[in-house]
Nucleic acid binder design. Sequence first.
DNA 1: ACGATGATGAAC
DNA 2: TTCATCATCGTA
Length: 173
Amino acid sequence: MRKILNKKFFNRSTVVVAKDLLGKFLVRNIGDKEIAEMIIETEAYDGYKDEASHASKGRTKRTEVMFGDPGNFYIYLCYGMYWMLNIVTREHGYPAAVLIRGIHGANGPGKLTKFLNINNKLNNKHAIKRNGLWFEDRGIKIPDRNIKKTPRIGVVYAGPIWSAKKWRFIINQ
DNA sequence: ACGATGATGAAC
DNA sequence: TTCATCATCGTA
Protein backbone atom coordinates (compact mmCIF):
# COMPACT_ATOMS: atom_id res chain seq x y z
CA MET A 1 0.00 0.00 0.00
CA ARG A 2 1.29 3.41 -1.03
CA LYS A 3 -0.91 6.40 -0.53
CA ILE A 4 0.37 9.95 -0.90
CA LEU A 5 -0.84 12.10 2.01
CA ASN A 6 -3.04 14.90 0.74
CA LYS A 7 -4.35 18.26 1.91
CA LYS A 8 -7.17 16.57 3.81
CA PHE A 9 -4.69 14.66 5.97
CA PHE A 10 -2.99 17.89 7.04
CA ASN A 11 -6.20 19.88 7.48
CA ARG A 12 -6.77 18.45 10.97
CA SER A 13 -5.73 19.06 14.56
CA THR A 14 -1.98 19.77 14.55
CA VAL A 15 -1.28 17.46 17.48
CA VAL A 16 -3.17 14.62 15.77
CA VAL A 17 -1.28 15.17 12.52
CA ALA A 18 2.07 15.24 14.36
CA LYS A 19 1.25 11.91 16.01
CA ASP A 20 -0.16 10.38 12.81
CA LEU A 21 2.98 11.28 10.85
CA LEU A 22 4.96 8.75 12.89
CA GLY A 23 5.39 5.64 10.76
CA LYS A 24 4.63 7.53 7.54
CA PHE A 25 7.35 7.93 4.92
CA LEU A 26 9.06 11.12 3.83
CA VAL A 27 10.03 10.69 0.19
CA ARG A 28 12.64 12.80 -1.61
CA ASN A 29 13.19 12.68 -5.34
CA ILE A 30 16.11 14.35 -7.07
CA GLY A 31 16.67 13.45 -10.71
CA ASP A 32 16.53 9.67 -10.94
CA LYS A 33 17.32 9.19 -7.26
CA GLU A 34 14.61 8.52 -4.71
CA ILE A 35 15.03 8.29 -0.95
CA ALA A 36 12.15 7.17 1.29
CA GLU A 37 12.59 7.04 5.06
CA MET A 38 10.14 6.50 7.90
CA ILE A 39 9.33 9.44 10.14
CA ILE A 40 10.21 8.67 13.76
CA GLU A 41 9.99 12.04 15.52
CA THR A 42 7.77 15.13 15.18
CA GLU A 43 6.68 18.25 17.07
CA ALA A 44 3.44 20.25 16.89
CA TYR A 45 3.29 24.06 16.76
CA ASP A 46 -0.30 25.22 16.94
CA GLY A 47 -1.92 28.62 16.73
CA TYR A 48 -0.90 32.23 17.36
CA LYS A 49 -1.21 31.77 21.13
CA ASP A 50 1.51 29.10 21.21
CA GLU A 51 4.48 31.14 22.47
CA ALA A 52 6.88 28.48 21.13
CA SER A 53 5.57 28.99 17.61
CA HIS A 54 6.92 31.59 15.22
CA ALA A 55 3.28 32.42 14.54
CA SER A 56 2.99 33.95 18.03
CA LYS A 57 4.62 37.02 16.44
CA GLY A 58 1.60 37.30 14.16
CA ARG A 59 1.66 37.52 10.39
CA THR A 60 5.12 38.47 9.14
CA LYS A 61 6.95 37.79 5.89
CA ARG A 62 8.33 34.61 7.44
CA THR A 63 5.28 33.31 9.33
CA GLU A 64 2.86 34.01 6.47
CA VAL A 65 3.53 30.47 5.23
CA MET A 66 2.13 28.97 8.44
CA PHE A 67 -1.19 30.71 7.72
CA GLY A 68 -1.31 29.11 4.28
CA ASP A 69 -2.74 25.88 2.92
CA PRO A 70 -2.39 22.61 4.84
CA GLY A 71 0.18 20.38 3.17
CA ASN A 72 2.54 23.24 2.28
CA PHE A 73 6.13 23.15 3.50
CA TYR A 74 7.33 25.76 5.97
CA ILE A 75 11.13 25.87 5.82
CA TYR A 76 13.41 28.30 7.61
CA LEU A 77 17.05 28.63 8.57
CA CYS A 78 17.96 28.01 12.20
CA TYR A 79 21.17 29.06 13.96
CA GLY A 80 22.48 30.28 10.61
CA MET A 81 23.20 26.73 9.39
CA TYR A 82 20.34 24.31 9.56
CA TRP A 83 17.16 24.18 7.53
CA MET A 84 14.09 23.15 9.52
CA LEU A 85 11.41 21.21 7.67
CA ASN A 86 7.81 21.79 8.74
CA ILE A 87 4.51 20.87 7.16
CA VAL A 88 1.58 23.28 7.50
CA THR A 89 -1.57 21.99 9.22
CA ARG A 90 -5.14 23.21 9.89
CA GLU A 91 -7.29 25.29 7.62
CA HIS A 92 -6.05 28.24 5.57
CA GLY A 93 -5.82 31.32 7.83
CA TYR A 94 -4.97 29.40 11.02
CA PRO A 95 -1.21 29.32 11.74
CA ALA A 96 0.07 25.83 12.57
CA ALA A 97 2.71 23.36 11.46
CA VAL A 98 4.48 20.13 12.38
CA LEU A 99 8.25 20.07 12.61
CA ILE A 100 9.80 16.88 11.24
CA ARG A 101 12.49 16.19 13.81
CA GLY A 102 13.66 12.73 12.82
CA ILE A 103 13.54 10.10 10.09
CA HIS A 104 15.06 6.64 10.12
CA GLY A 105 18.80 7.11 9.62
CA ALA A 106 18.85 10.84 10.45
CA ASN A 107 17.86 11.95 13.95
CA GLY A 108 17.58 15.69 14.39
CA PRO A 109 15.81 18.30 12.25
CA GLY A 110 19.04 19.83 10.94
CA LYS A 111 20.56 16.50 10.03
CA LEU A 112 17.61 15.21 8.05
CA THR A 113 17.35 18.28 5.83
CA LYS A 114 21.06 18.04 5.11
CA PHE A 115 20.67 14.33 4.36
CA LEU A 116 17.75 14.94 1.99
CA ASN A 117 19.16 18.11 0.43
CA ILE A 118 16.31 20.31 1.57
CA ASN A 119 16.54 24.11 1.65
CA ASN A 120 14.25 27.12 1.43
CA LYS A 121 13.62 26.57 -2.29
CA LEU A 122 10.82 24.29 -1.10
CA ASN A 123 9.40 26.88 1.31
CA ASN A 124 5.66 27.41 0.74
CA LYS A 125 5.59 24.62 -1.86
CA HIS A 126 3.03 21.84 -1.63
CA ALA A 127 3.99 18.31 -0.62
CA ILE A 128 3.46 16.56 -3.95
CA LYS A 129 5.65 14.43 -6.26
CA ARG A 130 6.00 17.25 -8.72
CA ASN A 131 7.95 19.25 -6.11
CA GLY A 132 10.27 16.34 -5.31
CA LEU A 133 9.26 15.99 -1.66
CA TRP A 134 6.13 14.34 -0.30
CA PHE A 135 4.68 12.02 2.33
CA GLU A 136 3.43 8.45 1.89
CA ASP A 137 1.36 6.09 3.96
CA ARG A 138 2.87 2.67 3.36
CA GLY A 139 0.50 0.81 5.64
CA ILE A 140 2.51 0.99 8.85
CA LYS A 141 0.44 1.84 11.94
CA ILE A 142 2.29 2.72 15.13
CA PRO A 143 0.27 1.65 18.18
CA ASP A 144 -0.25 4.29 20.87
CA ARG A 145 1.75 2.32 23.42
CA ASN A 146 4.82 2.70 21.18
CA ILE A 147 4.52 6.47 20.96
CA LYS A 148 6.37 8.56 23.51
CA LYS A 149 5.21 12.13 24.25
CA THR A 150 7.59 14.72 25.69
CA PRO A 151 7.88 18.51 25.88
CA ARG A 152 9.25 20.17 22.77
CA ILE A 153 12.98 20.75 22.39
CA GLY A 154 14.67 24.14 22.63
CA VAL A 155 11.59 26.17 23.50
CA VAL A 156 12.22 27.20 27.13
CA TYR A 157 11.82 30.81 26.01
CA ALA A 158 8.11 30.09 25.49
CA GLY A 159 7.34 30.25 29.22
CA PRO A 160 6.09 27.55 31.61
CA ILE A 161 2.73 26.84 29.99
CA TRP A 162 3.77 26.43 26.36
CA SER A 163 7.18 24.90 26.93
CA ALA A 164 5.61 22.18 29.12
CA LYS A 165 3.12 20.98 26.52
CA LYS A 166 3.90 17.42 25.48
CA TRP A 167 3.70 18.07 21.77
CA ARG A 168 6.77 16.11 20.76
CA PHE A 169 6.11 12.60 19.51
CA ILE A 170 8.71 9.83 19.15
CA ILE A 171 8.47 6.19 18.18
CA ASN A 172 9.69 4.06 21.04
CA GLN A 173 12.56 2.32 19.35
C1' DA B 1 30.28 23.34 27.60
C1' DC B 2 30.66 26.00 23.68
C1' DG B 3 31.24 28.19 19.16
C1' DA B 4 29.79 28.39 14.26
C1' DT B 5 26.79 31.36 11.46
C1' DG B 6 23.04 34.34 9.30
C1' DA B 7 18.05 35.41 9.07
C1' DT B 8 14.56 37.52 11.79
C1' DG B 9 11.91 40.86 14.39
C1' DA B 10 11.98 44.55 17.59
C1' DA B 11 13.99 48.57 19.29
C1' DC B 12 15.99 52.81 18.34
C1' DT C 1 20.65 50.46 11.37
C1' DT C 2 21.86 47.95 15.18
C1' DC C 3 21.07 44.24 18.43
C1' DA C 4 19.74 40.09 20.85
C1' DT C 5 17.88 35.87 19.83
C1' DC C 6 17.45 31.43 17.93
C1' DA C 7 12.25 24.87 16.76
C1' DT C 8 20.88 22.83 16.08
C1' DC C 9 24.93 20.11 15.90
C1' DG C 10 29.76 18.65 16.11
C1' DT C 11 33.66 18.89 18.76
C1' DA C 12 35.55 18.79 23.40
